[in-house]
Design a protein around this nucleic acid. Structure first.
Lengths: 227, 227
DNA sequence: ATCCTTATGATAGTATTGCTATTATATTCG
DNA sequence: CGAATATAATAGCAATACTATCATAAGGAT
């Protein structure tokens, strides 16, 4: 699929930014280096001042693109989920069998991220680490309901619903398809986090992947057994 | 069990506080009102200055108990998990059958929290909301590995392992018992959060509880079916 | 060529945060 | 009564998360 994405761009809710960072060179550098910096020092330590210093630009210029670092985080993670959605849709299109569609989807959503050459200024590996370590902070806030209303999380929500639809396609009788979908997507981030920081709280390691775990889980949960 | 806990106290790693808040009146007020304030305004907006104002005490006095609000959050959430562990252990002791033990445990860990009269200065309902909305922030930091080494998360880890042991007792052949345990405990918080803020991403609502979902899940995953 | 717009940069300023340090006062215990 | 301990009051400080203003530079339209 290397070239299928060449002319695609991830569409992000315009309310999230002040000025589209994809529209200028500085904007792209803001994205590129914010990924690097947040990944290196963590979201708490990251500031626009430090980012400005890093890219040889001015703090005030960055504020012309994003109103706050919180919005920037939402932008970056939205981009990530939008990118995931592309991968998912592209790989699933040719697949007919609902079971294979589902296992393919779970695999894509839970596996370790590899670089995508189609987006030069975005380091998807670093970005995926940011999503694992910081995504929850984007919605664990007092403003979540307003921001949800404003559509800040719509890409993520669409993704959860896509996976849910695939679960239903395999087992229409299963009554918790939406919760299972959100559990897999969020739980995958959590298992990756545990693998990196709390090895005693997960079975995942260099041999066993979160994908193995979730594929087994979904098999068990969606299969209806005879007696 | 109303009175079994009367003389118990939740033991918390001494490194987490400077001075034991249970040892003084001011300390208890710090706990009581920090739960209220964090619940009301969220962890980001919460400061020791505001807490001091609220309890008619001084910011500097609060710093004699906790080095930072981050440590206070770890204290509060550790208390919560320790309290959960008591509930769990007490309810499980008289139960023999491994399957019933497991379903009892999952029920306790996933159900909505009700007030516990044994701890007068702690509002468990408010505290559980804090755990749902803020717990992840206590470990999604750059300092997590050091703090983990220092035992800041030991109660939580012990709880995950207890549940894992009960899963193994029901199905020793299941290869992902630890991941399943952490998925249930963390996933429960997430489902409660979604129920409150992203109703489209969960099946849980006023009729269907996270407990229903997770009991069904664990039944499916741990049962070995014949043909 | 010049005007106008747009993008960026430089500088300054502000309220708040997350502390630390010092000194004063009040209480309690031997 | 004196000493220790707990709390309160005040000040101060560097950093954060911005906002506002003004300067400059580049490119496009007339």
């Amino acid at each position: 699929m290397e070239n299928l994405l060449k002319n695609l761009r991830v569409e992000i809710n315009e309310k999230i930014y002040i000025k589209d960072p994809e529209s200028t060179d500085l904007g792209k550098r803001i994205i590129q280096y914010s990924i690097q910096l947040i990944n290196d020092m963590g979201f708490e330590q990251f500031t626009f001042r430090k980012l400005g210093r890093e890219i040889g630009s001015n703090e005030s210029s960055i504020y012309r693109y994003f109103e706050s670092k919180h919005k920037l985080l939402i932008y970056l993670t939205s981009w990530y989920w939008g990118w995931m959605e592309y991968q998912l849709v592209l790989k699933i299109i040719p697949v007919q069998d609902p079971k294979v569609r589902l296992t393919t989807a779970v695999t894509i959503l839970t596996q370790e991220i590899v670089q995508d050459v189609n987006f030069e200024h975005i380091d998807e590996v670093a970005l995926s680490r940011i999503v694992i370590e910081e995504y929850a902070k984007s919605f664990l806030t007092k403003e979540v309901d307003q921001e949800n209303k404003d559509g800040y999380f719509s890409i993520y929500k669409r993704l959860v619903k896509r996976l849910q639809a695939m679960i239903v396609a395999v087992n229409p009788a299963y009554p918790y398809s939406t919760s299972l979908s959100s559990t897999i997507i969020e739980g995958s981030l959590h298992q990756h986090f545990l693998k990196n920081h709390f090895t005693a709280l997960t079975d995942c390691n260099d041999e066993v992947s979160p994908t193995d775990y979730f594929l087994h889980l979904i098999e068990k949960v969606t299969t209806t057994h005879g007696r």
